[in-house]
């Protein structure tokens, strides 16, 4: 069982419990750091794309033709998705990550999971991240059954272990007979539930979840909350990427707000989600103004 490193963090937990908005799992306590991110920058290259160049109406036909030709060949762009992010996550924490679209949430989590290399900065993870949660893609042409085997093997289970847990995984995902159909025929929610079921089959040290989980029925929601609590009790860390305030408040005891690749706020779910709400509203108003 993980130990708290100082008495004040214990105090924070008790405050949240008494305020009634969040109920921490009984046995889990904030522990030693599980993920440390130091000044992380992630850039990636896209071959074949070129940003649109400003045009000038005075150009002659030849210039326009050349510019058009140029935009179609030899393109290569660099996208700076994460611009200097630092934080420390602890065992037993459930951290929500919010931000507008394109703010770098998935990129950040992929980097923590080891799927993307940091361009600059360092990441330390204690244990093995379980990666199927965040916009992951298994093999669409293959059946759910096959993908369970592939995903399970990739997460470190043996063939035997995956077969043993197959029924449990299938039941947890709650997609019924669709498990024998190709995954490309699944709805987004079905895919997300199956991926979540696979990724929690091996009790992971660091789990990442995406919001499509909110699409399950009440039974599924209850099961996933239980599973997440189990993981935190065994001193795992959970990251939740979400847009819905309800999901965040229900699942997380800490929220990080990522905006355009940088951390805007990091702390109490209520505070951060309130600030984010404000921000979205002002953005919305500004967009209305531009339109009219």
């Amino acid at each position: 069982m993980a130990e708290t490193s100082n008495p004040s963090s214990n105090l924070e937990l008790e405050d949240e419990a008494s305020s009634g908005t969040y109920a921490p799992p009984k046995a889990g306590t904030l522990g030693t750091p599980s993920v440390i991110v130091e000044d992380l920058h992630v850039k990636y290259h896209v071959v074949g794309a070129r940003m649109k160049q400003p045009t000038s109406k005075q150009d002659g036909a030849l210039a326009k033709f050349l510019r058009k030709g140029r935009s179609l060949t030899g393109g290569h762009t660099t996208i700076h998705a994460v611009k200097g992010v630092s934080f420390t996550a602890r065992h037993g924490e459930s951290i929500g990550i919010i931000g507008t679209n394109g703010s770098g949430k998935s990129t950040l989590l992929k980097a923590i999971a080891g799927l993307l290399s940091p361009t600059e900065g360092k990441i330390f993870v204690s244990g093995i991240p379980s990666l199927l949660g965040v916009s992951a893609v298994l093999m669409g042409d293959l059946t759910g059954e096959r993908n369970i085997m592939i995903g399970g093997l990739a997460l470190g289970l043996s063939k035997k272990e995956v077969s043993e847990r197959f029924d449990e995984i299938a039941e947890f995902a709650g997609i019924g007979d669709a498990i024998y159909l190709p995954m490309k025929t699944y709805s987004a929610g079905m895919g997300a539930r199956l991926r979540f079921a696979i990724s929690t089959a091996a009790t992971p040290d660091v789990l990442m979840i995406d919001e499509a989980l909110a699409t399950g029925d009440a039974g599924f929601q209850a099961r996933s909350r239980e599973r997440i609590d189990e993981i935190r009790e065994t001193a795992g860390t959970v990251f939740v990427v979400a847009h819905s305030q309800a999901t965040i408040r229900a699942m997380c005891n800490r929220v990080i707000w990522l905006e355009q690749g940088q951390i805007r706020m990091d702390g109490d779910p209520e505070e951060v989600t309130a600030a984010y709400d404000e921000y979205s509203k002002t953005q919305g108003k500004a967009r209305q103004k531009r339109k009219s």
Binding site: K110, A113, P129, L131, L132, A154
Partner: peptide, 9 residues
């Protein structure tokens, strides 16, 4: 590429 970017192997 999408499988490669989703699973660690």
């Amino acid at each position: 590429i999408r499988l490669v970017q989703s699973l660690n192997f």
